[in-house]
Amino acid sequence: MVDQAETKTSGGFGETVKVIVQALLLALVIRTVLFQPFSIPSGSMMPTLVQGDYLFVSKWSYGYSKYSFPSLKPWIGYLPFEGRIIAMAPTRGDVIVFRKPGDEETDYIKRLIGLPGDRIQVRDGILFLNDVAVPREAAGEFTAEDGSKVQQFTETLPNGVSYLTLDLSPNSTGDNTREFVVPPDHYFMMGDNRDNSLDSRFDVGYVPAENLVGKAQVIFFSIGGNSSPLKIWDWPTELRPSRFFSWLS
């Protein structure tokens, strides 16, 4: 009887370990191939995304490159292929996570504005695509967590994608730029917080197609006050439930 009991106990422990290993492998596959969680560390994409938002990025949206598998790097390094496999072109207006050119260890998140061959310029705060002004309409004020208010505008791209942008200053560095011509297999990215975003107008430059990580799809969690999701005691005052499960255009 003792031997039978020990056998059952051992079998139960083995099954538990097996289930845990399977769950971890499934989570690794999901994170590597399907969805990657991403947190917003700054205000460069306000008002669309604010600091403390947590979102899911779909890895399959544009196919896969060597930057699509960061969780495998400790074991096998970046995969030894160039370009993308199962490649699909992004759509103008997508909110995209990508690796910064020249600093491929750093993730950035911006909105796709310019496709290969496009001519991009900002004149007096107005975005021009191929020498045509992108429609821009006043949309009231955005109220930040500190209570400050900022003028916001609705921009509508040629394919009909609309989103809100912020204008912190009428004469900032990024309000008047040279004309950018997007090279083949590259993209031009801009933050929605136009006067507080290091993007393709500045040191980010044109983003190679290979550097795209995925498309931002949905905010699944959001917490303010520079708090952490692990600080459960902050939840009653800092959670932003109205932002939970907000889909991104």
Results as ranks from 00 to 15, higher is better:
T165E: 05
Y163A: 04
N159A: 05
P158Y: 06
E137T: 15
N171K: 11
P170L: 02
A144E: 14
L164P: 03
G174A: 11
L164G: 09
T154F: 00
E141L: 12
D167G: 13
L164H: 12
F142H: 10
L166E: 06
S172F: 05
V161R: 08
R136C: 08
G160N: 07
T156M: 00
S148K: 10
D146W: 00
V150A: 11
P170W: 05
A138R: 11
S162H: 06
A139N: 11
Q152F: 03
T143I: 13
D175I: 03
L166D: 02
P158H: 07
A138I: 09
D167L: 10
A138L: 08
R136V: 07
K149T: 15
G140N: 07
S169C: 12
P158I: 06
N171F: 09
V161N: 09
P170F: 05
D167T: 15
S172Q: 07
Q151H: 15
G174I: 04
L166C: 06
G140D: 08
T143E: 13
K149S: 14
G147T: 12
Y163V: 04
S169D: 15
T173G: 13
V150Q: 09
S169P: 04
D146E: 06
Q151Y: 14
R136L: 05
L157N: 04
T156P: 01
E141D: 15
D175V: 01
D146P: 01
A139L: 02
Q151F: 13
K149A: 13
Q151I: 13
S162F: 02
E141P: 07
D167H: 13
T165C: 03
E155H: 02
T156W: 03
L166P: 03
L168Y: 15
S162E: 07
L168P: 09
S169N: 15
Y163L: 02
G147Q: 08
F142G: 05
S172V: 07
N171M: 09
A144F: 12
A139W: 02
K149C: 09
G147V: 10
L157F: 04
L166V: 08
L166K: 00
P158M: 03
L157R: 02
R136S: 12
N171T: 15
A139V: 04
N159M: 01
F153A: 01
V150E: 10
G147C: 09
A144L: 12
L166R: 01
Q152K: 06
G140A: 08
G160C: 03
G174W: 00
L157A: 08
A138W: 06
L164M: 12
Q152T: 07
E141H: 14
